[in-house]
Simulated scan of single mutants.
Amino acid sequence: MQRTAAARLSNILNTVSNSKRPLAVTNTGFQKPPRPVVGISNRMSFGIKTLGAQEAIELDKELMGSAGYSLDQLMELAGLSVAHAIYKVHPPSSGGRILILCGPGNNGGDGLVAARHLWHSGYKPTIYFPKKGKHEIFERLSTQLQGLGIPFTEDYKTALKETDHIVDAIFGFSFTGTTIRPPFDEVITAMKSSPLPKTSIDVPSSWDIEHGPPPSGPGEGFSPDNLISLTAPKHLVKYYKGRHFLGGRFCPPGLEEKYGLDLKGLYKGIDQIAELPRIED
């Protein structure tokens, strides 16, 4: 089943204040509970833990609860990380036209923020955003892009032929099931068929967060050239063989420890992203 942005945002925002797992504030800012036992299947070969859907949802809730972040802040930092990753893999000299395919959930918001940062970095982004989320943040982000003259298109087929790089910001980790509703079923099929380089945000659209690529349907055989995981990689990355980045440099140490993450020293200097080793067969 495909969750809408409104459903996901409502779930997160309504449960932040009464989360069942609050962190007690201490002199370091967070309680330090015992480190959870992490199965080897949930840790990448080079030591970084991966998250499943429920853990990713709970971590989002705590970031917007005890950690004090707003949804705007998290989208801004995530979108900035995405823009940095795209600049790394596809500098403007490789072609400045960037098509960002946005869905109605948080991934779509991250894509809109990335578009703004890419414009300021010399790119020419175009947005395909057929189903805007109902939360007012999407309207504000769209207004910001319109103020920069960034075009929105309804013709993704033509846009796919008039770009240099495709950003997949359609579905995130809240996507479950195998049914992809219009228009995104045809959009994913067209994106998959394009020979252009592609970068997916957090989750390649249509992939299952636990089990990776779908065995059938529009996303069958889809694997982007680049993936930028946000906050922490998800379980699906064990099936991913392309270039892989981690972004979202905002998780406080208390939550890193609570969720078994070990990100200390991963980011260098003021970098917003860190490239992770490829997973070999």
Results as ranks from 00 to 15, higher is better:
45 S>V: 08
46 F>G: 03
49 K>P: 04
49 K>A: 05
50 T>L: 00
53 A>E: 13
55 E>P: 04
55 E>M: 11
56 A>Y: 11
57 I>Y: 13
60 D>A: 13
60 D>P: 05
60 D>Q: 10
61 K>A: 09
61 K>Q: 15
63 L>P: 08
63 L>Q: 11
65 G>V: 02
70 S>W: 05
71 L>V: 15
73 Q>N: 05
76 E>K: 12
77 L>T: 03
77 L>Q: 13
80 L>M: 10
82 V>S: 08
85 A>Q: 07
86 I>D: 00
86 I>L: 15
87 Y>T: 10
90 H>E: 00
90 H>F: 04
91 P>V: 09
91 P>H: 03
93 S>H: 06
94 S>M: 10
94 S>Y: 03
100 I>E: 07
101 L>Y: 09
101 L>W: 11
102 C>S: 15
103 G>F: 11
104 P>R: 02
106 N>P: 02
109 G>K: 04
111 G>M: 04
113 V>H: 02
114 A>T: 08
115 A>F: 04
116 R>N: 02
118 L>S: 00
119 W>N: 03
122 G>P: 11
124 K>D: 14
125 P>D: 15
126 T>G: 08
127 I>Y: 07
128 Y>I: 03
129 F>L: 09
130 P>E: 07
131 K>R: 10
133 G>V: 10
134 K>F: 05
139 E>V: 13
141 L>Y: 07
146 Q>E: 14
146 Q>G: 12
146 Q>P: 01
147 G>F: 07
147 G>P: 06
151 P>Q: 08
151 P>A: 08
152 F>K: 07
153 T>W: 07
154 E>F: 01
154 E>R: 03
156 Y>I: 14
157 K>F: 13
157 K>D: 15
160 L>D: 06
160 L>V: 02
161 K>N: 09
162 E>D: 14
162 E>R: 07
162 E>N: 15
165 H>I: 09
167 V>K: 14
169 A>Q: 10
169 A>D: 00
173 F>W: 12
173 F>H: 08
